[in-house]
Design a protein around this nucleic acid. Structure first.
Lengths: 338, 338
DNA sequence: AAATTAAATACAATCGATTGTATTTAATTG
DNA sequence: CAATTAAATACAATCGATTGTATTTAATTT
């Protein structure tokens, strides 16, 4: 309370006007060099810290972007965030990180909060519960630019997005399994409301078709893709005596659950069952056998998404092909499919 | 630009004063129920979103706390953040998450930015480069309450903190190794500027002393504790023919580097070398052999730290013992020491 | 040195919401 | 029904910084 150092305090101390102080602090060329030095010196001396609330309110610009992800503990998201931060800071922007924890209600309140805080734009990878994205329309209404990355929202068609070529990734993975002689391939999928899981399923089906392997819908199992889901689904398959020779999971966690369960009942990986995951989480490299998986290039996606967003913020009109950026995935071969 | 819906717009639409609109939106009892309903309806109709910048500026309160951690991708930190968010949201606060990436310069600019944005308080676990914490004094100067968790800053003595009983954790771990018959125990330590690494070293030494095992300073190796450090340090030990029978690493990452290297040269774990890590990262459970490690209870630490901070924000004067909250660690026994 | 121009600074409105005080309206009481 | 009190609303200042316009001061030109 005692030391509320504002530009007015500095102004009074130097016997000049606060507008001059403001301009001096902003290095305006309407202020003489000498005055600038005086102001800067006094500001430092008094421990002045600009009040961004006031500044942003007046300028109607916060140089801040909001980032919403399901959870920061996922390697893909934390690396995407690193990419976002890198790009943002290099362009003079700050980043607010928020996690929805896969809950729609949290996502909604986060969005409202970001609007209230007048962020200049939002990057989002939606939760598993998100469907129509009504809450995202509030962003449009408030002229807050939005860019999706990884997980989209189908309802908002004209919104820019950066995505992985999920279908291709899944196609490659499945194809690879088939090439190794597997024919009864289980696919662990996620909520079909999310583009990424639909696309991965598509790629899986395409690969089967091209290789004349009949599609068996009993082999596609949807869940929230937690480790426990992977375990339980695998147990169910085994308990029901369903014959399988491979698992392609839409994420690493569920794949790891599967591996752990298979090992626990003495099934040999990859001899009896091959496994492929998705995302290249750090554990995928450490587990034994190490897990074949797909690199989503989170850093690159984050950077790209942030770059697009800031271009939109700056009033640039993106060309149609730029509004739909697609990152090429990479299949990382490891022991679980050798 | 078109739809700048402020309280004044609502006021004009209803032919009442903006102060009444403000009070209605804040559910003040100075406004009649009927007017409140009218205002709420109109606000919804026009898509009004409160401008927090203006509100916070006026109220000089943001209901936001800043959280600074080295990196969100570490399990301990992401779970601490979860705890912080849980507590914060339950008390009506928002959270801004920032990562220093272990760089002092980033930490400094983050702190300044948080002050500028007038957060009500800050929770921090400092970077490996942080020493005197001069940049944190700016928080004091600006009356922004601060609470440390996990990694402190020695210079700021009177600041509240929540920490693990690191010395005890290390003591227990080392003692356990000794109990298993190990006598030549390497300790991977981190920068000695950080309390956590000093404490862990202390606990290690204490255990040795109590068991009459001579302390050999050549067995204490400091690094940044990345996986690569663990690998290289282990290689160096082996290459120099230094006799060891166990490694106690101040984090899991370096321990995993050690395990990987030991396995690569055919050393049996734990038969030839036992290994203990620190933090209970998810990979520690998955690696083979699974890694004995220490649970830091990130969620609990985060919750506690946030609770303390908000109590300070609310003007409560903490009792001396509350200013130094200590969480009890837990040794998790796994295969790497069996 | 007077006149013109340019540079530096001061003045004042503004961003949007909040809040103490003043005023109007409605309710209560004798 | 007038007088008093209470309830509801309006007025106006404020938070701290920014910025267009006006004014002062300094520099340049003749």
């Amino acid at each position: 309370m005692s030391n509320k150092v504002t530009i007015h305090v500095i102004a009074k101390a130097l016997n000049i006007d606060s507008s001059t102080v403001s301009r001096a602090l902003n290095n305006s060329d309407r202020v003489t060099k000498k005055t600038k030095e005086l102001v800067l010196k006094k500001a430092k001396e008094l421990g002045y810290q600009r009040n961004s609330l006031a500044s942003n309110l007046r300028k109607n610009k916060s140089y801040t972007i909001g980032v919403v992800v399901p959870r920061i503990s996922r390697h893909f998201f934390s690396s995407a965030i690193s990419g976002i931060e890198e790009m943002a800071y290099s362009l003079g922007y700050n980043v607010i990180i928020c996690q929805s924890l896969e809950e729609l209600s949290r996502e909604e309140s986060i969005i409202n909060n970001l609007i209230s805080n007048r962020v200049d734009g939002v990057l989002i990878s939606v939760s598993m519960e998100t469907e129509d994205g009504a809450h995202l329309k509030a962003l449009k209404q408030n002229n807050v630019p939005l860019v999706f990355f990884d997980r989209h929202c189908n309802a908002l068609l004209n919104t820019s997005k950066v995505s992985l070529d999920d279908a291709h990734a899944a196609y490659e993975a499945t194809n690879y399994l088939i090439g190794k002689g597997n024919k009864r391939i289980v696919h662990f999928s996620g909520p079909q409301t999310l583009n990424i899981y639909r696309e991965r399923l598509k790629g899986y089906i395409k690969a089967l078709k091209e290789n004349n392997i009949p599609f068996d819908e009993d082999l596609v199992l949807s869940s929230r893709l937690m480790e426990l889901n992977g375990k339980e689904l695998t147990k169910k398959i085994i308990d029901n005596n369903i014959v399988i020779d491979a698992i392609f999971s839409a994420n690493d966690l569920a794949a790891i659950g599967a591996i752990k369960y298979l090992k626990s009942i003495g099934k040999k990986i990859p001899d009896e069952v091959s496994v492929i995951g998705f995302s290249n989480e750090p554990v995928s490299e450490v587990i034994e056998p190490s897990l074949t998986t797909i690199n989503q290039f989170g850093l690159k996606m984050g950077k790209k998404a942030c770059e697009l967003l800031i271009r939109i913020i700056n009033g640039e009109a993106l060309k149609p092909h730029e509004k739909n950026e697609i990152i090429k995935p990479e299949l990382i071969l490891r022991e679980s499919t050798l």
